[in-house]
Design a protein around this nucleic acid. Structure first.
Length: 822
RNA sequence: GCCGAAGUGGCGGAACUGGUAGACGCCCAGGACUUAAAAUCCUGUGUUCAGCAAUGGACGUACGGGUUCGAUUCCCGUCUUCGGCACCA
């Protein structure tokens, strides 16, 4: 790919590189690494392993910008650092290449998505290689490669065999322009992009992620993930414990089942509400109310999801005319219909306790329904709702049960037990999480390997991979099926069971990314998804770096698949990603999110060409804490370029001439201590992903080496090894210049001398009433009395002690002396 | 509305476990080198007051309180920004 500069004579190199010419140096070393397979992961079972993974990209047509490089730089520094600490490191990269943009482009231009994808991958890969990332490119994977998606399809069939993939007539989010179904999670995004999304029933493949809801919550505890991501997943799954209660209906034989998490407030229930789609909605309407009810149901149907659930607005509803009986009070309760009750959650019906639920309170006020206080409230519940759980029950007794004076937990228990005893209720756990609608009406995705036989039964495609046929047009069929429905040759077939029609749906883009981290471990295995021995050695992923936008969906889906693979014995661990790190977004120079429309995008290739990979790598990390959102500032990168030039001049002091000869003379004590402090700080900070302060510390060392004109070999070599994970090209080049043949990447990270990282003489601060009044020098570990005595001799302190009485003396060894005076 | 994170110089940010706030870098100013410029190096750089000056004082980590000899750090309250959820009963 790059001309092999390293083949030229050494003298030529020196002549060319006396000045710091990053572009030559970077190309030279990238070619060198490639030629020698420097970063290919070997089979070294005796070494401890470290698996550091990036969230692999969708190779878009717009290329990479500086924001994309942040996480990749962080993971690369970690990979290089861990290698130098003696780990066998797996650091791979691949492409999440199925997806809508390539297909949209195909519809417009007729270009095969495969061609688009290949082009984009080539350009992405060039940029990543130009950054000097130490990926093991021999393990590169691509989700659109049949050899890869063979196993995506295989996993689907395993899900199907276990009853975790099923077909269901579901109300889906249908996007008319895209002629496809969208996941709930994708809806808002698409609406923001200007598409319209409506509700429409369709037969769809659905994955039973809800069967894993509890495990997806409880196993979060063992993960080293940012607390907010865990919390977001818990909220998304939305587990709640409550009770299903059956209400007798007056004048009907049927019962009405509601779900509530507040059975402790049953005595305060004054009406029931069912959703417009509830099967009893129309049946409960009395003759008098029928017209009004039918109208209301009709109107609700026309409303979009957004209109029904979006924002807070006035509640609407209609009385059915029917009554149910409150099992606790035996009072009749009117049954209402309202679209604020969700059909798809719980039983689609609720009991309303307006005194202690804000939504019920609002509705009660709207329609003048009674409000009864059953939890002792600090104010009048007719005026304002009281929702707190830490008060006690009142007005809650009948002949069989009393909750008087009980707090929430106890009242809940008592009521639930009583309802169960009376056989009118049972405890129930509910989740907000819904099963995952898994089919898309698209061409550019993994075909779902299912056959529909004429007799209505389903069969599985055993000859995997089931590849995509070539098509002439990428438009979806008008029936809402994918373009695959237009290819008879592919669509129809016969086998021993009879003739069949293939499933025309393809999988969503999430599918390929649900398990790619496994394939990197064993990318060429044609027999198995992954070799069990390799899996045991490499899993889990020790560090997974990526954007917070995947906090819920990708990470939840991947965890779900991983647990299924665990259950069928393909993997040995319950969780895929042990430690997760979300890098913060890099904003444009205007402090706004980078976007084409704002015109504030800083393309990666731009800055690479201008400043070089090493400078870009360092600057990306120097910008601030990795997890923080921060603006890019092109001015700031100049400072990094200066730093690299300073490092260069340590070895090439003038702009011409050969490398300076390094000395073996002893370093001045100050400098030696500085060096050991730097080793400690850079090591600790790199370990903790605090790259910004590690770089600052290296700058301090370089400044001091420069000021002292130090050419000590030990100091220079140490600096280069510390710097190598961050700025690998210049480190390699200078390492070679000072006489090493082997790559600096094979050097071991230095260790520091504990005796040299602590100062022997310290500056002690003197405070009076908490204000700094002076300092003095004292040997480390000086006794308190000595420090106290010295402090009282400091001239600037004496002034403030004069005429004052010392009421208290505080001495913090090695730190400060503090006087409280009056 | 609920949950989570955060607020420090002109700017990005640093500060161990409550112990000298502002490391490192950018910007800016002055100087050295140069015919000149670039590059490089040196010095200064939170605000404000006093002083010719060396220097010294006061204030200062979103805001208002509190605990403490001492608070960017701990506690209470308020405001703002960002991220997530949003009628899930």
């Amino acid at each position: 790919m790059f001309p092999c500069v390293s083949c030229q004579g050494a003298s030529v190199i020196h002549k060319n590189t006396m000045k710091y010419e990053f572009s030559q140096i970077e190309k030279k070393w990238q070619a060198n690494w490639q030629k020698h397979n420097t970063f290919s992961t070997g089979n070294e079972p005796d070494k401890p392993k470290y698996y550091v993974l990036d969230m692999f990209p969708y190779p878009s047509g717009t290329g990479l910008h500086v924001g994309h490089l942040e996480g990749y730089t962080a993971s690369d520094i970690t990979a290089r650092y861990k290698r130098s600490c003696g780990y066998n490191v797996l650091h791979p990269m691949g492409w999440d290449a199925f997806g809508l943009p390539a297909e949209q482009f195909a519809i417009k231009t007729g270009t095969h998505p495969k061609a688009t994808t290949e082009n984009n991958i080539r350009s992405f890969k060039e940029t990543l290689q130009a950054m000097g990332f130490s990926y093991d490119w021999q393990r590169e994977i691509n989700t659109t490669d049949p050899a890869y998606f063979k196993w995506t399809q295989w996993i689907f069939l395993k899900l199907y065999e276990r009853g975790l993939a099923y077909m269901s007539e579901v109300d889906v989010n249908w996007c008319e322009e895209l002629k496809t179904v969208l996941a709930n999670e994708e809806v808002e995004e698409k609406i923001a992009e200007g598409y319209t999304v409506i509700r429409r029933p369709l037969r769809q493949w659905v994955l039973k992620i809800t069967a894993y809801a509890d495990r997806l919550i409880s196993d979060l505890d063992e993960l080293e993930w940012p607390e907010n991501v865990k919390q977001m997943q818990r909220n998304w799954i939305g587990r709640s414990e409550g009770v299903n209660i059956d209400f007798e209906l007056r004048c009907h034989n049927q019962k009405l089942r509601v779900y509530t998490t507040r059975p402790d407030t049953l005595f305060g229930a004054t009406y029931l509400v069912i959703s417009p789609e509830h099967p009893l909605a129309e049946k409960l309407a009395t003759a008098q109310q029928l017209v009004e009810v039918k109208n209301y149901i009709g109107q609700a149907k026309l409303k979009t999801e957004l209109e029904r659930t979006g924002l807070q607005k006035e509640k609407t509803g209609v009385f059915t005319g029917s009554y149910a009986i409150n099992p606790a009070t035996n009072e009749p309760l009117p049954v209402w219909i309202s679209d604020f009750v969700l059909t798809s959650y719980g039983t689609g019906a609720i009991m309303s306790v307006p005194a202690h639920d804000s939504r019920d309170w609002e509705f009660a006020k709207q329609y003048s329904l009674p409000i009864i206080e059953v939890i002792k409230s600090p104010h009048d519940v007719q005026e304002k709702v009281f929702e707190d759980k830490d008060s006690t029950c009142i007005n809650s007794s009948n002949g069989e049960i009393t909750l008087e004076g009980l707090k929430f937990t106890e009242a809940f228990e008592q009521m639930a037990a009583w309802l169960e005893r009376k056989r009118v209720g049972e405890r129930k756990v509910n989740y907000k999480l819904r099963d995952w609608i898994f089919s898309r009406q698209r061409y550019w995705g993994e075909p779902i390997p299912i056959k529909h036989y004429e007799d209505g039964t389903l069969g599985t495609e055993t000859n995997l991979p089931l590849v995509l046929p070539e098509v002439e047009a990428y438009h979806p069929s008008s029936t809402g099926e994918s373009p695959l429905a237009n290819i008879p040759d592919w669509l129809y077939g016969t086998d021993e069971h009879g003739s069949f029609r293939r499933e025309t749906n393809t999988m969503p883009q999430w599918a390929g990314s649900c398990w790619y981290y496994l394939r990197f471990i064993d990318p060429d295995n044609s027999e198995k998804l992954i070799d069990p021995e390799k899996e045991r050695y490499w899993m889990n992923v020790d560090l997974y770096i990526g954007g917070a936008e995947h906090a819920v969906l990708h990470l939840l889906y991947a965890r779900f698949w991983h647990k299924v693979l665990f259950d069928i014995g393909v993997v040995s661990s319950k969780e895929p990603f042990k430690r997760l790190f979300n890098q913060g977004m890099i904003l444009g120079e205007d402090n706004e999110k980078m976007s084409k429309s704002r015109g504030n995008v800083i393309p990666a290739d731009h800055v690479l060409e201008r400043y070089g990979a090493d400078a870009v790598r360092l600057y990306e990390m120097f910008l601030g804490p990795l997890e923080q959102v921060k603006p890019w500032n092109t001015n700031g990168i100049e400072g990094i370029s200066r730093f690299l030039s300073k490092v260069w001049r340590l070895i090439y002091p003038e702009h011409e001439g050969p490398a300076a000869s390094l000395t073996l003379d002893a370093m001045p004590d100050e400098l030696l201590r500085r060096m050991h402090k730097t080793i400690r700080k850079v090591g600790e900070d790199t370990e903790n992903l605090k790259f910004n302060t590690a770089i600052a510390e290296m700058m301090v060392l370089v400044n001091e080496l420069q000021k002292a004109g130090c050419r000590n070999r030990n100091a220079v070599e140490t600096l280069l090894i510390l710097l190598a994970p961050y700025a690998p090209h210049i480190a390699e080049e200078l390492w070679e210049a000072i006489g090493h043949n082997a790559s600096i990447s094979s050097e071991h990270f230095p260790s520091y001398d504990p005796a040299l990282v602590e100062d022997t003489v310290l500056t002690i601060a003197v405070q009076i009433n908490g204000k700094l009044r002076g300092t003095f020098l004292a040997p480390a570990k000086s006794p308190k009395e000595l420090l106290l005595g010295e402090a009282k001799k400091v001239e600037s302190v004496l002034k403030f002690l004069e005429g004052q009485t010392i009421v208290r003396e505080i001495v913090i060894p090695d730190k400060l002396v503090s006087f409280a005076v009056k």
